[in-house]
Design a binder for these strands. Sequence first.
DNA 1: GGTGTGAGTGAGTGAACACTCACACCTTGT
DNA 2: ACAAGGTGTGAGTGTTCACTCACTCACACC
Lengths: 178, 178
Amino acid sequence: MLRRAEDRRPELVDAALVEFARRGLYGTPTTAIAARAGISQAYLFRLYPTKEDLFVACIAEAYGRVRDQFAQAGEPHRGDPEAALEAMGEAYDRMLEDGTMLVNQLHSYAACQEPAVRAAVQQSFGSIVDTIREVSGAPDEAVQAFVAHGMLMNVMGAIGVAGSDAPWVRALRCEDES
Amino acid sequence: MLRRAEDRRPELVDAALVEFARRGLYGTPTTAIAARAGISQAYLFRLYPTKEDLFVACIAEAYGRVRDQFAQAGEPHRGDPEAALEAMGEAYDRMLEDGTMLVNQLHSYAACQEPAVRAAVQQSFGSIVDTIREVSGAPDEAVQAFVAHGMLMNVMGAIGVAGSDAPWVRALRCEDES
DNA sequence: GGTGTGAGTGAGTGAACACTCACACCTTGT
DNA sequence: ACAAGGTGTGAGTGTTCACTCACTCACACC
């Protein structure tokens, strides 16, 4: 019947990732998160003393998963930068399909006015870039282009043009007119 | 003594751009916006019937200014894609210094769950891309790389690593170690 | 069976916030 | 002179929300 708090916390973070994905730190009520996690709001605040603490935990989790996917995808191609980045790009595309982790990244940028959030974002983001650099061994220019391209795809997903065939969207996807 | 509503509205948008830049649509109280604009909160709601309407107006203004800067910077180089993109890039760097317009773009992505915001973002964003394409005449690949690079710089500014010299930041800026 | 401890919650609380309303004031046209 | 209409506000209102408190219950150990 009773569960350990250490077991509950990751479940709460899972639920919070879904809710925060919708409207970010400021727009997401803790009641919705608690309801999704199947616990009382009061207990949410026992597991994480403030909403911001929970958000920071979500940031760390979301970035961590992305980093792990990159590492896993790139590892078999260690020593072959092009192949490694290619594999990481495919992993990124797969993550874009669900979108929860990536859209939370956008919300994390938006909440960087809060010092605790900013610190977590800097740390987690740096860890992803380090992983890309270390595993792929690619030159800085290629890493920069890779990260930048990922952000563009992320934003295009978030603003709902991923499936659009407006000319400017097709151009950003580098599809020729047909 | 009394001013016309049409004159007030742009001033209100200016003030709102500053306030929204901090915490976005959900995290910014209308009281703060009204105070900055030097009007009562009640009058704010006469000028824009909902906070969301005001936010949408801010989106349009922020994106519009960016688009105008791009057009102005690129126009003298029409017909020379590389030079045009280069000039636009410099214009972007200048806009990053203040940051208000660009960080509002991040907040606009984060608020895309609201249909009205999403529609405005899609329209304004497309208008920027169209301008870049039309004025520079650059191939899709170059436009994509340009936009993606801009987003990366924007995010790095927002998360507060613009001036950092951590290795991963230097790598993303493509500076060699020194 | 008793007792201590951590899990878990129902029912608040106070503040913040989006939005409203009744009213005053200024300006313009006639 | 005065009506009409736009400008502007003080003082709310109802709701939402982060966070708290007093409490119950399950379990482990003796």
